[in-house]
Amino acid sequence: MGGPLLWPAGEPWPVYEPVHGAYGPLTTPADVRTLRQTIAQARSRPRRPGTDLLTEQETAAVDRIRAGYAPELLPEGPLPLIPLVQLYARDVPGLPCPEGTDMLQALWTPFDEIEGASGAVQLRWRLSSDVQEILAEPPEPAYIDMSDHVPMPCVLHPEQVREFPPVHLLTEEQTQRVDAWTEQRSIDHQHVDYEGDLSTAPGWKLGGWPAHFTYGCPADFEELRCGECGGPVEALLTVASSEWEGRSRSWRPVEDVDGDLYHTRTPTIVTVGRGCALQIYRCISTPTHLPRTIIQ
């Protein structure tokens, strides 16, 4: 996640030109990394109660970064996309690679335009052995609007889990059976919440059931159709704002039980909308079509 991509040196890097203006102060990927590193180093230092977290020099640097840049001082035109995730079929069971490919790369824009079926989110399916010369210095956008769209580089440890349909897809009879089961389970053992504990796994994931819709339930017909051919789509990748929420702590990895809650719950430091998730759907008939994305 958020790391370097196996990208051919001779292949153009995907770009996107924001349609709307920025909502907040503009910054750069380098400034985002500097800000995160500065705050992380400050938090790791021992300090006496009542003393400031940052030194005067660090405070000045942080204030300068947070002030951002004026839009008129920055270049116009399309901006390079930012790497989201790179997955290999050898590492990820069930990765739906089209014939002749063995890896998936996903990229997105650092602007608040990631929903729909535009070039703001793009996928690349490729055969890793075909990449002989790797692009040494991938381009970065000259400026960004959403620092929350710059993932903290993380390695992956894929794990298969079993999910059940989300509550908005259950029939009335199924809902009644689930309610009765959870009520009895809570009496006999401990409190169990179907939606939070058993239904759809939170966090970043490949495939599985789509999350509960935040802004529309159920989705409109056009929301779940390919934006290029109008054909059916299927859930491919979920980009989440956290790996678990308060009501879904049962999904928390046992390896992270004794770890730092903030960093184990939000290792990528990515935030979608106001703490939502971006569901990326791929076209079933033509996986190379632009993906359909919905914030849920």
Rank of each mutant, 00 (worst) to 15 (best):
L206N: 07
E137Y: 09
E99F: 13
C97M: 02
I65G: 09
L87E: 00
Q190L: 13
F221E: 15
F213L: 14
H189V: 08
G203H: 00
V85Y: 13
Q160I: 09
A60M: 15
E133S: 02
A30Y: 02
P75G: 04
L206S: 06
Q37R: 13
P232F: 00
P49H: 03
P83R: 04
A67P: 09
A180Q: 10
R64T: 15
A42C: 11
A117H: 10
R247Y: 13
V239P: 00
V167T: 12
P8W: 04
Y281F: 14
T171F: 08
I144F: 13
R124Y: 07
R292Q: 12
S250P: 03
A142C: 06
D52T: 03
S128C: 09
S285K: 09
L127D: 15
D52M: 04
L73G: 09
Y23S: 03
P202M: 02
G227N: 05
P4G: 01
T286C: 12
A201K: 10
R66N: 14
R162E: 11
D260V: 05
P151D: 11
E113F: 14
S285H: 08
Q190C: 08
L26R: 07
E234A: 00
E172T: 15
H189E: 11
S44H: 07
V239H: 00
E183S: 09
A142S: 07
R47I: 10
G2I: 07
G196F: 11
A9Y: 07
P166A: 08
M1I: 09
Y88G: 01
L135C: 10
R64H: 11
W251T: 14
T27E: 13
A211W: 00
P110N: 10
G2E: 04
P18D: 02
P93K: 11
D63T: 07
C276S: 14
L169P: 05
R43P: 07
A22T: 06
H189S: 08
E172M: 15
D260Q: 04
T28H: 13
R124F: 06
R47L: 08
E245Q: 07
L73M: 10
L53V: 05
A22M: 05
T38F: 03
G259V: 08
P12N: 04
Q279E: 10
S242M: 03
I82M: 04
A22C: 03
L135W: 03
E56Y: 04
L156G: 00
S250R: 07
R45W: 00
W13R: 06
F213C: 15
D188C: 04
F111W: 02
T171S: 13
G246M: 13
E228Y: 01
P166Q: 08
L84T: 05
Q41T: 15
T175A: 09
G196I: 14
P98S: 01
L35M: 12
D63L: 04
